[in-house]
Amino acid sequence: MPTPPCTDPVVLNLWHPLSAVAETAAGQDHTTTLLEEQIGYAWSPDAGARAWRTGATQHQLPTLVRYGYIWTSLGTPPKDLFSIPEYDEPDRRNMNASTIGVHVSAPRAIENFLDMAHFPFVHTDVLGSEPHTEVVEYDVDVSAERDEVLATRCRMFQPKASASSSAGAEVEYVYRVPHPYCSILYKTSGDDPGRKDVIAVFLQPVDQEHVRAHLLLSVLDDAHEDKEIRNFQQSIFGQDKPILENQFPKRLPLDPRSETPIRADKSAVAYRRWLSGKGITYGVIPAGR
């Protein structure tokens, strides 16, 4: 077999999302690109998911169906994917807001997802507004046991935090990065301030500088149609897209001296260090190069 284009063992052994089940016509073969390889996949309610390298149909790749998406791996993946316990709560609305191709590396997209400082400027009058631009002190922790980056006590004044908000409010966020190319945020729910809405981004690395961004919503909202909830998130993501696509270099530099973080970037600093510790090379510019 020829050498695969991606030779990073850390990335090869990860689970990667291919498509939302809801957008996969049952019983038909589909193709997509993962780590520069053409991957075929299919799904049906009876047979579940299958995936293969195009041209090697007899050689099945491992698959999982989690959180409404079909996942595969080109290496030897862990037994299961990271856990999102909220997804199974019976009163949540779970849906794929969108799967959108973006000309950016997966780690740059994760960093944008973690960043609150851009809210007032990029998501003006929605997720932030002037003069409420300060990112107040928050906590970042890298859990060795769970092998994930965790940012807590993140707060921001938001004029319109979600499809269900009617007025501005201070909203509290928690961010998890349990996978080099996946992140989950929890934010105060507009419908039930005691609980949190869950928004996750699962990045499918097409190559080192292109992703398909799958956006999972698991929200508490009794009032809005699915399409209204998706529309809100699609508009937000549409605002991020040109910002993401104009970052340079497109791959994320891991050398701490290559870019100058400020205090608000604490979670990004921890994320970069965590990636370095894993020895990841795909989608990044490793330190010392």
């Binding site: 939302a20 809801a22 957008e23 794929n96 969108s98 799967t99 699915d226 399409k227 209204e228 998706r230 529309n231 699609q234």
Partner: peptide, 10 residues
């Protein structure tokens, strides 16, 4: 009136 082109193909 929102007509969801993607993913709803409305």
């Amino acid at each position: 009136v929102d007509v969801e082109f993607y993913p709803g193909r409305e």
